[in-house]
Amino acid sequence: MSRSQFAPEARAAVVFVLPALTLITLFFILPVIGGFVLSLTDFDIYSVGNTANTRFVGAENYTQLSSNKVFWQALRNTLYFAFVGCPLTILIALAAALLLNAKVARFKALFRTIYFAPVVTTIVAVAVVWRYLYHPRVGLLNRALSVVGIEAIDWLGDPRWALPAVILMAVWKNFGYSAVIFLAALQNVPEDLYEAARVDGAGPIRQFWSVTLPSLAPTMIFVTIITAIGYVQLFAEVYVMTPDGGPLNSTLSIVMLMYREGFRWWNMGDAAAVAFALFAIVILMSVILMLTRKRWARA
């Protein structure tokens, strides 16, 4: 095939991809590269007024970060949120999907819709609702607990409870997403596998362990990592429920720290270094996702 045969097609292709690629390059790719450059400077409030006030400082922001207690706390909080919140979300999602997939279950569409509804809601708005549910005196949660004789807990004001409270809300908000993905995977498990297991004398529990769970493994890895990547970007929930990092910075997340440093105090060099810490975590998770997917594809 000669090149000229493609010429009009190739010309059209350039026109078709140009608007999107220009926007993505200019307003995403370049800023990402710019962010790395920014993280190597001392860009601060004086630079916002006049960029001539910016100096190149090499890795200084990163070394400062590594000796900054608040940064480590934000990192710890973020990973705690992800590593506790993620398995909880997945477990509840799996339970919901198994129930929805049960042969005897009726009104499946209705239940699925209800479980999924929190996923599409606006985080800020539901965080406002949960802020009141957690209110120590008038919140529904403490009122319900007082019925069974549990004393009032200051959920969002107590450094021991603030982050677990945010996790509970996140589980409520997100389990429906994984449940729907699990449900689709469950419906794809071939019936013959169960048939064969039954012939071999496997009961329901045995069938779950040796047929259902192995068939779900690739989906499980996928939703776990997607959920974890979402969770390490925790921001709106804590911004609304526990302003300014919560009691003793107990809910300060990486993105919250980036926002505070960058857009409240205009320490944009430091903030950019924080952003790249997030970048490193997310890339690491994506690489794990890709490697495990490849492995499953080969198996």
Binding site: F27, F28, I29, L30, P31, V32, G34, G35, L38, I229, Q233, F235, V255, M258, G262, F263, M268, A271, A272, A275, F276, L278, F279, V282, I283, S286
Partner: peptide, 16 residues
Amino acid sequence: ALAIPAQVAMLPLFLL
């Protein structure tokens, strides 16, 4: 590039 979290671009994007 799909793996890059949006927040990474936000500081320079704001300045731009």
